[in-house]
Design a protein around this nucleic acid. Structure first.
Lengths: 179, 179
DNA sequence: GCAGGTTGATCAATACTTTGATTAGCTTGT
DNA sequence: ACAAGCTAATCAAAGTATTGATCAACCTGC
């Protein structure tokens, strides 16, 4: 078992990426290897990070990262309309609505018809929600620090700069917006 | 309508991040603002990118990015066991299994009991699958290029380098692995 | 004032992912 | 040779996400 398995996993993610880029440019000459590699790397790092944070921090606490994001926005912005939570968290209104079902059931958030607009719903953290945010975010960030420590302090700054540049670039601005 | 909406979305993602980092370090002194910002930026860019690619390339073709990843691995590696597809694509075996249900139904992939191991299943692209991959990936990469063009050529290289460094760093290696 | 259009939230259907359980087949140690 | 354990795939249940439809409320213009 060791022999064959080793051979195969040697052609693992990193090396597989080289292979993938090579073969793809061979067969599809229009493909740009740099952007292919950039997006692959971005996607891979982020999914590994998200998965790790969910698995080590959020699921053990009994919540999810998406739920946490909603709580986090409410913690930062104070009680506010669902609509606003969606736009600040970058989620769709439907997603927030579905998520709040769970959060409300778990007693972390309360839903109340808005004063001004009778269509709208105001969301507010409960005490349990506030507590959850504080303790969870501390653990969350501790884990983020572990990931970040791989880079030198100046590399971190450079990386943040490049990501924020991409985030405010043309493609991002013209990108289809979530409903 | 313009007035108020503009005010609110001015406190949009970018500016909200500044506000979030500020308020959080105030209230939770243990939190490291750099890693907070790094992970937020990473997550935000990647979700916007993934969402945009799904919305502009994959959904219009009638498929999803995850499904596409499975096809892509099969295209690159040739017919192989489901297990191998999972490890090369970074997905769990369950996820591949579920995904192949859809792909098989749509006639893009065939499932066949493996020759050597009667538990295992061999996956293989159909002609339709091969065609789908080629045309879809060309469009996919065209869109990737649009995103990448925000950065200068040397910035792209730096970014790839930093992401790959993070991907092979300590945290990534010790990260919980998908089952 | 009221009709027509827009917007906020929710629901319905579908898809993808996760964990945990199940089934079946391989493998190892005695 | 056979029991015990491991591994491959799948299933089941729950959660999160999407689009598109629905319904109610707001707002605008006639």
């Amino acid at each position: 078992m060791p022999e064959e398995t080793t051979d195969q996993s040697a052609l693992d993610f990193l090396s597989f990426m080289d292979f993938a880029v090579g073969k793809t440019v061979d067969e599809l000459p229009e493909v740009d290897p740099v952007s292919m590699r950039l997006v692959l790397a971005l996607h891979r790092v982020t999914s590994a990070l998200v998965y790790d944070l969910e698995a080590t921090v959020h699921r053990p606490s009994g919540w999810s990262w998406p739920g946490f994001r909603v709580l986090f926005v409410l913690w930062l912005a104070g009680p506010c309309e669902a609509k606003r939570v969606a736009s600040l968290s970058g989620m769709s209104r439907s997603a927030v609505s579905a998520l709040v079902n769970t959060l409300e059931r778990d007693g972390l958030v309360t839903r109340r018809p808005s004063a001004g607009d009778r269509r709208a719903v105001d969301l507010e953290l409960t005490d349990a929600g506030r507590e959850a945010i504080v303790s969870t975010y501390t653990a969350h960030n501790k884990r983020e620090q572990t990931w970040t420590e791989t880079l030198t302090p100046s590399e971190r700054v450079v990386l943040i700069g490049l990501l924020e540049k991409m985030a405010s670039g043309t493609a991002a601005r013209e990108a289809v917006k979530r409903s």
